[in-house]
Write a protein that binds this DNA or RNA. Structure first.
Lengths: 335, 335
DNA sequence: GCAGGGGCTTGGAACGTTCCAAGGAGTTGT
DNA sequence: ACAACTCCTTGGAACGTTCCAAGCCCCTGC
């Protein structure tokens, strides 16, 4: 009835063996006699014994846990990265523990501290806004990898997608459809926003379109995308296509254009970034740039494992290629 | 350089005091001399000391951790429940650790075991499909509350929304607009689907509309909603309104109707359930039934706290009232 | 019949904390 | 001057594991 946790010693007593033997059985050690093994297993079952990971971690000096700090649990981008993380963590006999910063920097710092105090064997920071001092600090006590954010911090690994190249793909696609007047809705301080903007500008230049390239401010939210469109409309001289810095903002833009009586893609083409589940919804069908989130998560764990198990110490910074996904929001320009 | 974790003893040596004193300072105990307190704090800072939660938990026999098991990290419904959980857990000096079952029952069982081995002080299961034997089992070793799933399991608390009432609200709303021929796209085995169906049928009866009430099969996915619509279209004799068992399926339905050349809400009204962020997207603007997820999360933690801190043992099962949210997918029927 | 093994099993010492009983140094009252 | 306090500080015993050195028992070979 009481929430009594039987220990290895209770099991030992019941099975009439030493605690060491029970410990061996629980860990699946090979050289244990069949009869006693059976007795121990039976006793454990009867008592409802469950190993105490806390005690185990204390003596082994490792937890077999990876901590995942997510900046935002609500952004499908991150939760899809987690899928990749869980997959490869699990196959390496590690478990993943997720915490979220509740979208605030202070919350993130606290969540990271919780994980560090728990002595996780490695830390994956996905899209956090933590200052690099805390990150460097954390990295002195356990391996850290940043996903979807680049860093110069010493001793920290990172895996990002090539935002510049991705933005270029968006422009190439629109150019191939015949667009020349293209506007970019900026992502503000969002992770990767700056590279996407410079990738956009670079690609426009490459196509000789620098004179018709425009950038309007925005951010990574639905409202940010809508605000960007508002700026486009106010400016007059409508472009024929808009490249928005992420999917959520692109959906905000989509709605804003519709509200203004402009049809997508007939009047205006729209490209997003990330290829989250949102973009794939049938009702939305957003043309976008896919970041291989699953792969990025898997890779993050591999970087961790290289440090934990293989003892690597030199930092590695991986860049993964994005990919264009064409859906229904892009078409040749009118006329 | 090495990932050396300084201990309380290292700090004590450096500050020239006993380990007990360091322990007291770290816990913020009141009766410590100012001068030594300062010395200890300085030493800890210099060494980069971080308390070891593992050791602490072992001796205190409590972790100050609540474990959250999410059936699906990608369903915004659950992540919004987590917001509520984190909020009240934090203010009660607990931390929340999230794991996900990766959408598979075996994964859920494993994730729960991880949490239990970590000796979390309480467990919140949100929308899991775990069999009630495992749940009852878990409940024998730590407080467990189920969110968004009812249970009869002894010793387990639960907090759910009133699905029957919510479905009734959807019907009432449609009836008030003038609809009489209403079809329900069923949610299959999804949590709450059965109650929503029976709530739908009950409300139709209440309005004297039982003869025009139809139910077609579906599930909680986008594809499930689309399939439901297909069934509606095939059956001929189109209803003027459709109540779909959750938002995601409703969005699938929305797309399916559009594909079939039917305008929402002009030709057909559509109501979802849950009021996830998806439904609120401007481009979608789905009329739906709001489950107060935030409140449900908060309440879940409170139930846990009642058991952990106040020693309650009698199970409690809370039912929270849903709320109609009218957006753009409902309108009076044509003609 | 005994040394040398091998196969199993065992007790004890960690691991880094917290908690408790007890100790030391002042201070106050008589 | 000493008892009785108060205030601060301390060492040691937990907590539930793992790991290691050592032990027991029985077998094998000579």
């Amino acid at each position: 009835m009481a929430s009594s946790h039987p220990t290895i010693i209770d099991v030992a007593r019941r099975a009439g063996v030493s605690k060491s033997l029970v410990s061996m059985v629980m860990r699946g050690a090979p050289n244990v006699g069949v009869e006693r093994r059976a007795r121990v297993l039976a006793a454990a079952e009867e008592l409802g014994y469950r190993p105490n990971a806390v005690a185990r971690s204390l003596v082994r000096q490792r937890t077999n846990l990876f901590g995942i700090l997510l900046s935002d649990l609500h952004n499908p981008y991150f939760t899809e990265v987690v899928d990749g993380i869980e997959e490869s963590a699990f196959s390496a006999e590690y478990r993943a523990l997720i915490t979220s910063g509740g979208r605030q920097p202070a919350g993130e710092a606290r969540a990271m501290d919780t994980l560090l105090q728990l002595r996780v064997d490695g830390l994956i920071l996905a899209g956090t806004v933590l200052d690099s001092r805390s990150i460097r600090n954390a990295a002195r006590t356990c391996p850290v990898v940043l996903v979807a954010r680049a860093t110069r911090a010493a001793g920290v690994d990172s895996v990002v997608n090539d935002d510049r190249a991705g933005a270029g793909m968006a422009v190439d696609h629109l150019r191939a459809l015949g667009h020349t007047r293209i506007t970019h809705v900026d992502g503000g301080v969002g992770a990767g926003a700056a590279s996407r903007r410079s990738g956009f500008l670079g690609a426009m230049r490459r196509h000789g379109l620098e004179r018709s390239a425009r950038v309007v401010p925005g951010d990574f939210t639905e409202a940010g995308g809508a605000a960007g469109v508002k700026a486009v409309l106010v400016a007059g001289d409508l472009p024929t296509a808009v490249f928005v810095s992420n999917d959520l903002a692109a959906i905000g833009a989509l709605h804003a254009f519709e509200d203004a009586g402009l049809a997508v893609p007939e009047d205006i083409s729209l490209v997003g970034y990330d290829n989250t589940a949102l973009a794939a919804l049938g009702h939305i069908g957003l043309t976008t740039i896919d970041q291989p989130r699953h792969e990025m998560g898997r890779t993050g764990v591999e970087l961790l494992l290289e440090r934990v198990e293989a003892g690597r110490t030199a930092p590695r910074h991986l860049v993964i290629a994005p990919r264009l996904v064409v859906r229904r929001t892009t078409a040749p320009p009118r006329g």
